[in-house]
Design a protein around this nucleic acid. Structure first.
Length: 616
RNA sequence: GCAUCCAUAGCUCAGCUGGAUAGAGCAACGGUUUUCUAAACCGUAGGUCAUAGGUUCGAAUCCUAUUGGGUGUACCA
């Protein structure tokens, strides 16, 4: 198949389309094939690929598979009802799996035999390799987290980290070889601000002496700098300077700029202070990362990469993609693409942000030779990445078409944006601690874990607290902004992480009680409506993984897992106690259904970075 | 100004490769436990899918315009 795509969204669309043929039911392909044949025989017409549309039958009607016949009416030259009846009769006669059909307007609802569902379940789902997707031989890099080393992580970073981790795991599950990368912004004027404030007012305070987590300690001095800087600005403005002048001429900012120059010149004292304070920050970040359960295969540091990109600029100048203005600054003209002129190198030869990113992109490609590269970065940088990717494409980088900006919305509070100056920032460490303590409180209130060991209890509280937080953040489509109300704790009931965790624990408890051993059931078993729906839902797991991966959307996986959990709870409630079931085949089959549910919940939640407990 | 994203129940969100009467959770109200974990299950109530056009047999979904909100449009990163 020939494919061409001119931009990222076309690229994405193409990927989803190509998937369509695969996921449209591993289970239902035979119906499509038969329908093609039917149309040929009944109407002597050929149907183009993709015209036959099969979907789940709505609950209120009889059947499991529905063919929408409207697109076929053109070929049959009969009414929708007549066409549906023709096809229904044909399929009923020619497919042993089809046991009945009914027609509602232009919809042909097919009932598929019990035996078909049973054998699908036993042969496809109840096998160890179910859900495992074969390696696709492709390499993808996921860059996420990318923190500044001047302050601790907050809720916005938490969304980034969880999203990046989950997308990486999702791509792994979809068959990619994945490299998780963290590009740490460890240099620049903002770092110097913390350093300077510490030098002036820190009294040699250290994490050890103060008991403060390293990143919080450094963040404290960043705030102090800002406060003192503001005082200076106000004083200067009282002396008659404009706000702009005051901001530029305050002694503190000048001193910080001096420090940055000293850093760039390799000044020993400055470098060693920088190393010391960054060291504290890294120790702090490690703790937060560990608590969040995220990890990286490689760290890049801007202190090593900030000079990159000048070679790329030369390349662009040589090929005529860039041009030089009389003052010596280098630009690219993107007005033909609906964008602006963009500076890529200052007149004095120093880099700007995008210079560095051009160089870093090249370096990362040289390091890994990946087919695709995902940047997990907030939507305030949409324009930047549009420009970056376009420039790389114009420079003739063949790998540029594999670049993708996974843009996500900001996390807002009911009061609006988080603002560090107003103290409304939700700190990542505080949030984690609160979630764990809420989990503890809620769990203790239920009184089910009194006999657990202290160690098991603590692990459980941690898993539930983090499960609630992660699911809460991941169930929302990345590009949508996310509202977080700190005054209302995150729910533990309904569409939540703990609900799915609880469901898993329930299944495991059942399987334990029954002394479950996995074994296919060959004897005929009557399936209830719910059991049938359950098989249908469970069978979609592999395609749900692929769909979610293609769309870079942990949210769609999260919502699927919720459906699975809900379905199990319904089933569990409807069916009489399984452990006491006397019909051996029925019992085994219901346990099998439960076991596959547990497998999917565990594997799926683990992709989201959530641990499901064995009991809770 | 221009670019871009968002708008679905009181609240938080699904649904968007166009398909039947738009779904969940929370909050509200009512019910279910001598039965395998009630963090569960069942039910009631709640909607002009921002607005107006268009394409189509069919639109929450695609197109255009408008309104409201976010973000960007730096020789900051």
């Amino acid at each position: 198949m020939v494919c061409s795509y001119t931009n990222v969204s076309n690229f994405l669309e193409y990927k989803i389309r190509s998937l369509y043929h695969i996921w449209l039911f591993l289970a239902m392909n035979f119906i499509i094939t038969a329908t093609h044949k039917a149309i040929k025989e009944l109407y002597n017409e050929e149907v183009a690929e993709g015209v036959i549309n099969i979907q789940d039958t709505r609950k209120e009607f009889e059947g499991q598979a529905t063919i929408v016949v409207f697109p076929i009416v053109r070929l049959s030259k009969k009414s929708p009802e007549q066409t549906a009846n023709d096809l229904g009769n044909y399929l009923l006669e020619n497919l042993k799996e089809v046991t009945a059909f009914n027609v509602v307007k232009g919809f042909l609802n097919l009932s598929i035999a019990n035996e078909y569902w049973l054998s699908l379940f036993n042969n496809e789902l109840l096998v160890p390799e179910f859900g495992a997707i074969k390696p696709n031989g492709k390499k993808v890099m996921v860059e996420y987290s990318s923190p500044n080393t001047n302050k601790p992580l907050h809720l916005g970073h938490v969304r980034n980290n969880l999203l990046g981790y989950a997308v990486a795991e999702l791509l792994k599950a979809d068959g990619y070889e994945v490299f998780k990368v963290n590009l740490v912004n460890d240099r620049g004027i903002h770092i110097c601000k913390s350093m300077l404030a510490w030098q002036k007012w820190g009294n040699e305070e250290t994490p050890q002496s103060s008991g403060l987590k390293g990143d919080h300690l450094v963040g404290k001095y960043y705030v102090i700098f800002d406060k003192e800087y503001k005082k200076e600005i106000e004083a200067l403005m009282r002396d008659g300077l404009t706000e702009d002048e005051a901001k530029k001429n305050a002694p503190l900012i000048l001193e910080a700029q001096q420090m940055l120059l000293a850093w760039e010149a390799g000044d020993d004292a400055v470098i060693s202070l920088w190393q010391k304070m960054n060291g504290w920050v890294y120790e702090g970040f490690e703790v937060t990362y560990k608590n969040l359960g995220v990890d990286f295969d490689k760290y890049y540091y801007e202190s090593n990469t900030y000079l990159l990109g000048k070679g790329t600029v030369d390349e662009g100048l040589a090929s005529g993609v860039f041009f030089k203005k009389p003052d010596g600054s280098v630009w690219i003209d993107l007005t033909a693409d609906g964008l602006d002129q963009k500076l890529v190198l200052r007149a004095d030869g120093t880099s700007v942000y995008i210079t560095q990113d051009l160089g870093t992109a090249q370096m990362k490609y040289d390091d890994f030779k990946m087919d695709e590269s995902i940047y997990v970065v907030g939507n305030e940088q949409d324009y930047h990445f549009k420009v970056l990717f376009l420039i790389l494409e114009k420079l003739g980088k063949t790998w540029a078409k594999g670049l993708y900006h996974l843009s996500y919305g900001m996390v807002d509070l009911p009061s609006g944006k988080m603002k560090s100056r107003e103290g409304t920032v939700v700190d990542a460490d505080d949030l984690i601690a609160e979630m764990v303590s809420t989990a503890k409180q809620k769990t203790e209130a239920l009184g089910k874990v009194d006999h657990f060991s202290d160690e098991e209890k603590n692990t459980l509280y941690y898993n539930i607290g983090l499960g609630a937080l992660k699911y809460f953040l991941l169930k929302v489509e990345p590009k949508k902004r996310l509202l977080f109300d700190p005054s209302e704790s995150i729910d533990f009931q309904g569409n939540t992480g703990p609900f799915i965790q609880y469901t898993h624990a329930r299944v495991k408890s059942l399987l334990n009680k029954a002394g479950y051993v996995s074994e296919p059931v060959t004897a005929p078993v009557e399936l209830s409506e719910t059991e049938l729906e359950m098989i249908l839902l469970l069978s979609k797991y592999p395609s749900e993984i692929s769909l979610a991966a293609k769309a870079y959307s942990p949210a769609s996986l999260a919502n699927y897992l919720y459906e699975v959990a809900k379905m199990f709870n319904k089933f569990y409630h409807e069916v009489p106690p399984i452990v006491k079931e006397e019909d051996a085949a029925v019992k085994q089959h219901r346990l099998n259904l439960s076991a596959v549910t547990a497998t999917i919940l565990k594997a799926g939640m683990s992709i989201l970075g959530i641990t499901v407990p064995e009991r809770m």
